[in-house]
């Protein structure tokens, strides 16, 4: 029952992704790459690149994309609805409580402890992706190192930190430079 599994997986993602769009991604990686092995780490990274360059919340894009790859268009709908459902219920209830009683102290305290954990989780996911770029899932040796990928990463990271420019532009730049490197015959 692939649809049921998809639904359960994305219900969990939807329920526990607190703290911004990127917070959902370690959860999705955990569910679909590690636990269920529905897609590879490389496909997962492609998916984030695509999700980043299209409008809409990144988690919704990811849920739809993974769902379609696992179970076609119906799978996409099941994954997306699974992701949406917990937040629909929780936000509606919290909205009701909040506009009645205007109190958020415990919620804010929970949030302030969650934030460092979320940063750590995003760092973990980012490092997995970086290892995927540098060694393509192979052993971490100097011979196996993808130099072009490493240079592109350093360039992209430097540009992002220094100029705070749009991630979409950075990704397009990386894609074009990678094509250029391939055209002049550098190994990728």
């Amino acid at each position: 029952m692939i649809y049921l599994q998809l639904l359960l997986s994305f219900l969990q993602v939807g329920l526990f992704s607190i703290g911004g769009g990127y917070a959902a991604l370690p959860l999705i990686q955990n569910q679909v790459v590690e636990l269920h092995q529905w897609i590879t780490m490389s496909e997962f990274t492609d998916l984030i690149a695509i999700a980043e360059m299209t409008p809409g919340p990144i988690a919704i894009n990811a849920a739809t994309f993974v769902g379609i790859r696992v179970g076609g268009v119906l799978g996409g709908l099941v994954g997306t609805l699974g992701f949406l459902f917990p937040s629909l219920v929780i936000v509606s209830v919290m909205g009701f409580v909040y506009f009645r009683y205007k109190g958020l102290t415990i919620l804010q305290s929970i949030l302030s402890s969650l934030r460092p954990a979320v940063v750590a989780l995003i760092a973990g996911a980012g490092l997995s992706i970086l290892l995927q770029v540098l060694f393509a899932g192979g052993p971490m040796t100097l011979e196996g190192l993808n130099w072009v990928g490493g240079l592109l990463f350093c360039l992209a990271f430097g540009v992002l930190r220094k100029f705070k420019c749009n991630p979409i532009l950075v990704m397009l730049l990386c894609g074009s430079l990678s094509l250029l490197a391939g055209l002049i015959g550098l190994p990728a």
Partner: peptide, 18 residues
């Protein structure tokens, strides 16, 4: 090839967010 380059960009975006 282009997607592979973008993967390097994705890693950079993640660490920038961090």
């Amino acid at each position: 090839l282009a997607l592979k380059g973008m993967q390097a960009g994705v890693a950079a975006v993640f660490l920038d967010v961090v």
